[in-house]
Amino acid sequence: MSVMPMPKARVSLTLIAAFFALYFIWGSTYLVIRIGVESWPPMLMAGCRFVIAGALLLAWALYRGAPLPSGRQWLNAGAIGVLLLSCGNGGVTVAEHWGVASGVAALAVATVPLFTLVFARLFGQRNTLLEWGGIGLGLCGIVLLNLGSNLQGSPAGAALILFAAAAWAFGSVWSRRLDLPAGPMASALEMLVGGAALLLGSQLSGEHLQQLPDLRGWLALGYLVVFGSIIAFSAYVYLLANVRPAAATSYAFVNPAVAVLLGVLFAGEHIGWPEALAMAVIIGAVVLISLPQWRRREAA
């Protein structure tokens, strides 16, 4: 009796678990970030989050016998860490500190697949007419999003969160072309360097704690370290190495809905009709540009 199908089953379960972490755990982190920045300075909280998570992952990887990364791998992982975590996640954290609602932040980050497609084109990937149509529709969604009161109340937050989405997308595409360590070691190095850059930014910008965070602030940091970073970010790095970038960024389908629902239920956030319409348009655009990616994957 053959036992060959078992590895396939394990790989399939790993993919399912990784997508679940991206879709639902990451969707919840937008609300948790908003809770955290009520008692933490934003860059200080984000920097602590990633340095702690990166150190834990590094210790675990070394304990499991992972080889030490080369100097080139350190540099490559550091560059990706700055793009994804310092500019990407750090930008979202600061934008929420400036008053952008958690659900609206998730919706703005839903533009990541649109930016991913544009940057993939710069690296030589040809886009179809359907994909270009999705980019155009997504740009309309961004305009609608900026008509809502949430982003009009914080123009700087609106600009910062779109920059964060673009930085995350560029780092995601570029990472597939770099020599990075295998497994959790890549996540560990990216978090350590990205977190260190955030702590440096916190220091240079004059952030400091007025008083120790309350219990909600500490719980928020713990949740972001364990679930948002060690589990969900590691799942994202795994998917980037094993599926197409557009599939890895497909969490943009679900994250806005999860974040909006949690923000309305637990944070008293209100989403107006421009944001609701923008959600429909942006998610429709993401679906449009992702269809060719999934078809190619199925054909392969």
Rank of each mutant, 00 (worst) to 15 (best):
Met1Gly: 13
Met1Asp: 15
Met6Cys: 09
Arg10Asp: 13
Val11Cys: 15
Ser12Leu: 14
Phe24Trp: 05
Gly27Arg: 11
Thr29Met: 04
Tyr30Ala: 10
Ile35Cys: 12
Val37Cys: 09
Ala46Gln: 09
Ala59Met: 03
Ala66His: 06
Arg72Met: 04
Gln73Ile: 12
Asn76Pro: 00
Asn76Cys: 10
Gly78Leu: 11
Leu85Lys: 10
Gly88Ile: 12
Gly90Cys: 09
Gly90Arg: 10
Gly91Thr: 04
His97Met: 13
Phe115Leu: 04
Leu122Ile: 04
Arg126Pro: 04
Gly136Pro: 04
Leu145Glu: 11
Leu151Gln: 09
Ala158Thr: 06
Ala159His: 08
Trp168Val: 00
Trp168Phe: 05
Ala169Asp: 00
Leu178Ser: 08
Leu178Thr: 06
Leu178Pro: 09
Leu180Pro: 00
Leu180Glu: 07
Pro184Met: 15
Ala186Glu: 14
Glu190Trp: 14
Gly195Val: 12
Ala197Pro: 13
Gly201Asp: 01
Gly206Gln: 09
Glu207Asn: 10
Leu209His: 08
Leu219Cys: 11
Val225Tyr: 05
Gly228Leu: 09
Ile230Lys: 14
Ile230Phe: 02
Ile231Met: 01
Ala232Cys: 01
Leu239Ala: 06
Leu240Gly: 00
Ala246His: 14
Thr249Asp: 06
Gly263Lys: 11
Gly268Val: 08
Glu269Thr: 04
Trp273Leu: 05
Met279Leu: 15
Ala280Gly: 12
Ala280Gln: 12
Val281Ile: 09
Ile282Phe: 12
Gly284Phe: 01
Leu291Met: 12
Trp294Ala: 03
